[in-house]
Design a protein around this nucleic acid. Structure first.
Lengths: 353, 353
DNA sequence: TTGAAAGCGCTACCAG
DNA sequence: CTGGTAGCGCTTTCAA
């Protein structure tokens, strides 16, 4: 029944042996009712003198309100649940950074879950995040288990799927079509005069965005009648710089006459370029290399890397805005007009092609 | 008084117009008391037949327990508060990744706060994170406002400060001395034969770890009697690749005979190297460049970058372990034996020096 | 193994 | 502008 008088860990120092102050303690010390304390904290109208007295009591007792009690009583938390596949790729950490910038300013707190590209873990995560009655949810991708979709739909809170533009989102979506973006890059390479164009990506099917890029590559290769697709898939997704080298070797072993390579990410493109250097191949003289994502490495590498530029942080910011709008509107994200928020991308032409 | 019958956002679909199921609904449907439902959820001993009946009711109603109510009643949440300065540097996102890997497995949920290197924001953040009665706290750095320290101390929960090793931590610390690490790098450069060694870092004083590295540089320069320190500070911390170039220009303008540069990070080192290429300077022939952090770019750049290797993700993992140990031990982190957890670092010698 | 009652700390509602 | 009352949904305690 209820909290023990002593908190669990009390060995830090003796002052923590006294139970933390409650709102009733503050009320007693200030000579007012709990309600008045509550009003002061919420910023509601309270006589100035009373407010100051209460504030002094709060400071004196180092009172920290209990958010769980508040949430239970008011039926609303200040949580936003955020689900990303990983934080080691700078992609999603930039998105989370954009989310925090937008949502923390609005007084929301980020409840973060990392799925490691595992749909099952995603489902468990969503389930436990929803226990906290978040005000809204931002989740990466459009590929979820049926149970996950149901959970999110039933939750009744605004949901944004990020980094993709599914035809039928759970609620709102902020992203772009990875397939179309990849097609655009292939198209650019063809315009540039390349014809024997290969694709280099990770071996795992869990990275949907990587898979979609590959799909776009296939489509455009077929549309342009460029013959057999040249596809090398190597290493766990998301693939890193160190995979680019071996992948390039494998590629040239199978298709030595390849004249351009589109990589699933800038990191792998960078790795491939380094491998070209080692093999004495000139980029783009002997072979062109393109990336995806426009990470800093793309701009700073030698040669600098032609890539698809996507504003990862912007996805976070736009997602935050869409969620806040839905909250303000007391509606779903879709009803608030953000069912499909298209994020711009563009081929940034640099030296490597 | 209490929750309204209808959740806030109910426009998603008509099924969400019915109030979500409560434990009492499950109990009624299963023909048992709330307590039995609670026991089933907690995994306590319940007759198999009863347990199955309850589970069916849970599934049928799509019941999601309310964590706020549970936390209020039991006096314990499943939160771990995590505070980092930024997520755009891959440093801290790797640490958060390590934390999630360790702590989510233990059933804890990450409440994330991003301070943007602002001590005031940190204080506000810690204050609002503590409202949620987290089980433990992981915070970056050892530099906090007095109020922040007091808040954390009074909270009575295990705290780990990451990325530094203060003599007098709030509770536990997992990190290393940035100053010593920087000295080690300067020492290495001296051993290598360089004498006119410069330091290149960000202009802001908010990045304590950058400041500490600068301090270490100064100390070693003095210890080795290498004359006047050559220091260029440019751009907001943490400085990025694009700052490396201008900073190198500024450096060579003031001290044209510099023979080695230690950069505050690999990213700035990479930018500086690119600038050397543009200026026709050979690295390390004309000038040596060293970085800090051992990011992927350091290994893949041409020339590859000599750097101080720190296991950022490992800091997160070790922090998670220290916190879990304290929780299991029902004590502070310090009492659980992790007052100072030293993280190894080493100078990784590559081509750039 | 199960149930009933009490109450965690706070806020909504209404009265004054 | 302020206070009393009721109760949010769950777990604890104790009794059966």
């Amino acid at each position: 029944m209820g909290k023990p008088a002593l908190p669990a860990a009390t060995t830090l120092d003796t002052t923590s042996l006294v139970a933390p102050a409650r709102m009733s303690d503050v009320a007693r010390l200030a000579g007012v009712s709990k309600m008045t304390v509550s009003r002061v904290l919420a910023g509601h109208s309270v006589a100035l003198a009373t407010r100051e007295r209460v504030q002094r009591a709060i400071d004196e007792l180092a009172y920290v309100p209990d958010a769980a009690a508040g949430a239970l009583s008011s039926g609303r938390s200040e949580f936003v649940a955020v689900v990303v596949p990983s934080l080691s790729s700078s992609n999603f950490s930039a998105t989370v950074q954009g989310l925090t910038a937008t949502l923390e300013a609005a007084g929301l707190q980020l409840l973060l879950g990392v799925t490691d590209y595992d749909p099952l873990r995603e489902e468990r995560l969503v389930r436990s995040l929803l226990r906290h009655q978040p005000r809204c949810v931002a989740i990466t991708g459009a590929q979820h288990s049926a149970a996950t979709r149901t959970l999110l739909q039933r939750s009744g809170v605004p949901v944004v799927e990020m980094w993709d533009l599914p035809a039928d989102p759970i609620d709102g979506a902020v992203g772009f079509s990875n397939a179309l973006a990849a097609r655009k890059m292939v198209h650019f390479l063809v315009e540039r005069g390349y014809r024997r164009i290969a694709f280099l990506g990770g071996a795992s099917d869990l990275d949907r965005r990587g898979i979609d890029r590959l799909k776009g590559y296939r489509q455009e290769i077929r549309a342009q009648a460029l013959g057999e697709p040249r596809i090398v898939r190597l290493g766990d997704s998301p693939i890193t710089m160190s995979h680019g080298g071996p992948a390039l070797d494998a590629l040239l072993k199978t298709w030595p006459d390849t004249d351009a390579v589109m990589c699933v990410s800038d990191e792998s493109a960078f790795g491939a370029i380094m491998q070209c250097h080692r093999r004495g191949l000139s980029v783009p003289g002997d072979i062109a290399i393109a990336g995806f994502g426009d990470f800093e490495v793309a701009a700073c590498s030698t040669p600098s890397i032609t890539t698809v530029s996507v504003d990862a942080q912007g996805i976070g910011v736009r997602t935050g805005e869409a969620l806040l709008a839905a909250l303000a509107n007391n509606s779903s994200v879709a009803a608030a007009g953000s069912k499909h928020v298209k994020i711009d991308y563009s081929v940034v032409v640099r030296e490597s092609t």
